[in-house]
Computed example of a mutant assay.
Amino acid sequence: MRRHGLLHAELNRVIAAMGHTDTLVIADVGLPVPPGVPCIDLALLPGTPSFAAVFEAVYAELAVERLTVASEIHRKNPALVDLSTRIRAEGVGVDEVSHDDLKRLAARAVAVVRTGETSPYANVILHAGVTF
């Protein structure tokens, strides 16, 4: 058993198997999971676990080269705007696409991690980087 960090066995396996440019989606409770893409469903209750908690746990474990978010966050999700600003300041690229394009891009992900988040457009695609 791990002493700290991400404890979810299936999520750890997915992250450990990811290669450079593979993608992982962290999604709110409403994002449709594309056919054929595995879903790691963490949703327990509305808001639990939160997008922020899951994002921070995964971000601490995965080498992230860039993120993709929906451009609609500027109108509907100030918390995700703040997160994007913080990530950019850390030197990680942040791409913005329409929500419809984000849903299409999710079809290429190695998995979708479904949270209990209920705020609008709380979805992000993490693009794996390298550690060297």
Rank of each mutant, 00 (worst) to 15 (best):
D22F: 14
L7Y: 07
V33T: 08
D28N: 11
L67R: 00
R114A: 04
A79N: 03
D82A: 15
A43D: 07
E56Y: 06
N123Q: 09
H127D: 03
V112S: 04
R108F: 12
E56A: 15
A9P: 15
N123R: 10
E65H: 12
L24D: 04
D41N: 15
V97S: 05
G91M: 11
L45K: 12
A122G: 11
I125S: 03
A122T: 09
I15V: 11
A109C: 12
A70W: 00
P120Q: 08
S71R: 15
G19R: 15
E61Y: 04
H8W: 03
V113P: 02
L24A: 05
E10F: 04
R3H: 06
A107Q: 06
S119I: 09
T115C: 09
I40H: 02
L44A: 11
A17Q: 14
H74Q: 12
T131A: 14
P35N: 09
L80W: 01
P120V: 14
I125G: 01
E96F: 10
T48P: 01
V97C: 09
R2C: 06
C39D: 01
A27S: 15
L44Y: 15
G93V: 08
L7I: 08
L7V: 09
A52Y: 07
N77E: 07
A57T: 06
A27Q: 02
P78V: 05
L62K: 04
H4N: 05
R75C: 07
R13G: 10
R86I: 13
P35A: 07
R13A: 14
H99N: 12
L42Q: 05
N123D: 15
A57W: 00
V37E: 03
A109M: 04
P35I: 05
F55C: 01
L31S: 03
I40D: 04
E96N: 14
V81C: 07
E72S: 13
D41I: 00
P32Y: 09
Y121C: 10
L83E: 04
V54F: 03
T68A: 14
I15N: 00
A106F: 14
G129Y: 09
T115N: 02
P38M: 10
G129F: 05
E65K: 12
P35V: 11
K76Y: 10
D95K: 04
V37Y: 10
L126C: 14
S71N: 08
L67W: 06
G116N: 02
V94H: 07
P49R: 03
S71H: 09
D100A: 06
V54W: 00
P35H: 08
E96K: 15
R114F: 01
L11Y: 03
S84E: 10
P35F: 02
L80N: 01
V37Q: 07
I40A: 08
A53M: 11
I40E: 00
H99I: 09
T23A: 08
T85G: 06
I26M: 05
A60I: 01
D82Y: 02
R3L: 09
T131C: 10
